[in-house]
Simulated scan of single mutants.
Amino acid sequence: MRILFIGDVVGDRGMEMLESRISSLKQQYKPQVTIVNGENSTSQGRGITKAIFKKMMGMGVDVVTLGNHAWNNEEIYQFIDDTPKLIRPANYPDAPGNGYTIVNVNNTKLAVINIQGRVFLDTIDNPFVVLQQLVDKLQKEVDYIFVDCHAEATSEKMAMATFLDGKISALVGTHTHVQTNDAQILPHGTAFLSDAGMTGPIGGVLGMQAESVLSRFLNARPVRFNVVSSGAAVLGACVIDLSDKDGHALKIKNMVIKSDDPIEN
């Protein structure tokens, strides 16, 4: 099985970049499953709407994952229970929606889990405990398990992947909007990448207008971060090949595509 995973889509430029590139990526790599993190995909860069989710599905996305901004757009409470291919972090206590979904591909099953770290983020349920429980359950039901680990600390993501090495097919990090250079297959067969990076504008700071971010650093007062709405953009992603025999990873390739790069045919 081949999985295409695309990192945090940020604002309108992120959606434009996704729309302009996903067809060529799918044509070039021919993934059986395409997964996109959409927790920053609104024009404001926080949360997701039903219209955006449906647009992603129309592009050929199979599963949309979320993160700590899942609840910033209140509209999500109206539709997340009815959209099983939109998943939020599984370790939010008593939250609507689901923390995982199962995709059927040619008589095999892939479980996609969304989990959120706790270092430098909200102290929600222990992600290690929740993941262990889910993996124990899903190992009996599916052939492959993919985890989107939405977390700030590289050490926490690496620790989770090591904790479950050999029990899951892959763990890819999201949230920091900066792609890391540590794509690897761990000793027992789990593919790992600390962060896939973002899909969105590269001007400003991590997709946000620099003025508001600098203001927060300089005076420590609350300020609204505004998304960069024009200019160059980037798409952060990875492609993972999984063994049909045991569900372990065979290969992981990370990539960064800039808006001025030629489109592959």
Rank of each mutant, 00 (worst) to 15 (best):
Q139G: 04
I52L: 04
G38C: 05
K140T: 15
F120M: 10
D81C: 12
H69R: 04
I52S: 02
K55D: 11
A111Q: 03
N37S: 07
K55F: 02
V135A: 05
N72C: 14
Y100S: 14
E39S: 07
L18A: 01
I48D: 06
E141H: 10
S43G: 15
D94C: 05
N98S: 14
G11I: 11
Y29E: 10
M59W: 14
N107P: 12
I102Q: 00
P96I: 04
E39P: 09
L138R: 02
N72M: 13
T123V: 12
Y92I: 11
Y77M: 13
L66H: 13
I145H: 03
N73W: 14
N68A: 03
F79C: 02
E141K: 15
D81P: 07
L110S: 08
I113H: 06
L86I: 08
E39M: 04
N98A: 13
F146R: 02
I115M: 14
I102L: 05
V103H: 06
T49Q: 03
V36W: 01
V112L: 09
K26H: 04
V61F: 03
V63K: 01
K109Y: 06
Q28Y: 15
K109Q: 07
W71A: 13
K50H: 11
N98P: 02
D125Q: 14
V33G: 07
I102A: 02
E141I: 12
S24D: 08
E19A: 15
S24I: 03
I22K: 09
R88L: 13
V130G: 03
F53E: 07
V105L: 12
R13G: 10
G38N: 01
K50S: 05
P89F: 03
V130C: 08
G60Q: 06
S23V: 06
N72A: 15
V105R: 09
E74F: 13
T108Q: 14
A70M: 07
V64T: 08
G38F: 02
A51N: 15
L110K: 01
F79D: 07
I87E: 08
P127A: 01
P84T: 03
K140Y: 07
P84I: 01
R88P: 06
R13I: 15
D143S: 07
D94I: 00
R88Y: 07
K26N: 05
D62E: 07
Q32M: 14
S20A: 13
T42C: 13
Q78W: 08
V103D: 00
N73P: 04
H69W: 05
N106S: 11
K26Y: 11
Q78N: 14
L121H: 09
N40P: 10
G58E: 10
N68E: 08
V33K: 09
K137D: 08
D125V: 12
H69V: 12
N68M: 08
T83K: 14
M59Q: 11
K26S: 06
V36I: 09
G58L: 09
V105W: 02
Y100Q: 10
Q116P: 01
I87L: 00
I48F: 10
Y100V: 09
W71E: 00
N68P: 00
T83G: 09
E75P: 10
D136L: 10
T42A: 00
N73V: 14
N106M: 07
V129I: 15
D12C: 13
K109V: 04
V103R: 07
Q132S: 15
K54G: 08
G67P: 11
D82V: 08
G45E: 01
V36F: 10
